Amino acid sequence: MTTKVEESVLVNVPVSVAYNQWTQFEDFPRFMGGVQSVTQLGDDRLRWVAEIAGVKREWEARILEQVRDAKVAWAATEGATNAGAVTFEDLGGGQTSVHLSLEYAPEGLVEKVGDALGVVEGRAKKDLERFKAFIEDEGYATGAWRGEVNAGAGVGTPGVEAAAASEGDRGKAGFSGKAVAAGLGAAAAGAAAAVVGAAKAGRDADAAEVDPVAPATAEPLPPAEPVAGETAPVVDVPPTRTAPVADDGTDPAAQI
């Protein structure tokens, strides 16, 4: 099962400025929460390291289509399974609409809980808002790449089917156990606690239905009777030590 995210933001800069900033992929950690690094391996290849919802993920993505001032579409080739596109629409008057379409496949219990709580959707919305604040505060892009990749290919908005090459890597993208509670927040932690508590309560209830069994006490065995024709063994008992008695009948030790 996959999840789709659709988010938009209106930025008060010309479309070329908004687009140019987006082409600076290695600057993404400056406004994308949870993104630790993006490394550009080539004009159409990126390596991502991110921690979202308490789960650390590393993946590589390929740009399937990049059209100047209009669109960047991508799909993962290994690691976390995701794909999507960012489009830029010139609204005139120095305003641009930036729209993000993303589809991803959550993996494991932690990611699925985070998915149910809308963690990724919330993160995407905040990331676009931070992008808006970043580019509007600067007023210009920190850099620009005006090249294109497969322009006119018409790939549309890629879904996870375009990231099929990454599906074999599920569970291999990395995991950060210590950040689970912090990443999912109190709601997810509470949900996990409720599951554990319910399981424990069930075990306690089962145990309570069983009547306790009193410990058995050992009865003393009767003394063994001698077998006919045999004599009981004779046990040598050492003589009791007694104090010497003086001729007058007094105890010498008492006179010391």
Rank of each mutant, 00 (worst) to 15 (best):
G154D: 06
S8E: 15
R30I: 09
D206Q: 10
A151Q: 09
D211Y: 04
V35H: 02
E60W: 09
A83W: 05
P29T: 06
A75P: 13
E148Q: 07
A198G: 15
A246Y: 04
E230A: 02
T81V: 15
Y19D: 03
A133R: 13
Y104R: 03
K178P: 01
V9F: 02
V227T: 11
G79K: 05
A186H: 00
P226R: 00
A181N: 05
A75C: 06
K71N: 01
L184Q: 05
Q24N: 07
D251H: 10
G202K: 08
Q66C: 08
V235K: 09
F25P: 01
Q255D: 14
V11S: 14
V120G: 00
A199H: 07
G183S: 07
A207G: 11
L46H: 11
P106I: 11
D211H: 01
G42I: 03
E89K: 11
G177W: 13
D137N: 13
N82Q: 06
G33E: 07
A199I: 09
A83P: 03
T81H: 01
E138N: 14
E103L: 06
E136L: 13
G185N: 04
E138V: 04
G143N: 07
T87W: 04
P215C: 03
G156E: 00
A144P: 05
A186R: 09
V98Y: 07
E51M: 06
G159T: 07
K56S: 15
R203C: 00
E51F: 08
V195N: 11
P233C: 01
P226M: 01
A53H: 08
A187N: 05
G156A: 03
P29G: 06
R45W: 14
V67C: 03
A201F: 13
G249T: 02
R45H: 09
V113A: 15
V98N: 14
G202V: 12
V11R: 03
R241S: 11
A193M: 12
S166W: 06
G79Q: 13
V237T: 11
P158Q: 00
V234W: 05
V72F: 04
L100T: 00
T242G: 05
G79R: 12
R45K: 15
V11I: 13
W59T: 08
D90E: 13
A187E: 05
T250E: 10
P233G: 02
L184K: 04
T142V: 09
R47A: 15
T96A: 08
F175G: 03
G147V: 02
A133I: 14
K178A: 07
A179S: 15
D137V: 05
R203L: 14
A201P: 01
R241Q: 13
E58N: 15
L10W: 00
N20F: 02
E136T: 13
R30G: 00
E65N: 07
R146K: 03
A187Y: 01
E107N: 05
V67S: 04
V49W: 10
T3Y: 11
D251E: 10
L128E: 02
V67D: 10
L41K: 14
A232K: 05
E136N: 15
A179Q: 15
A53F: 14
S176G: 14
G92S: 12
V237W: 09
E58S: 15
G202N: 03
G118R: 12
E107F: 10
E26Y: 10
G177L: 10
Q24L: 13
L117T: 09
K56N: 12
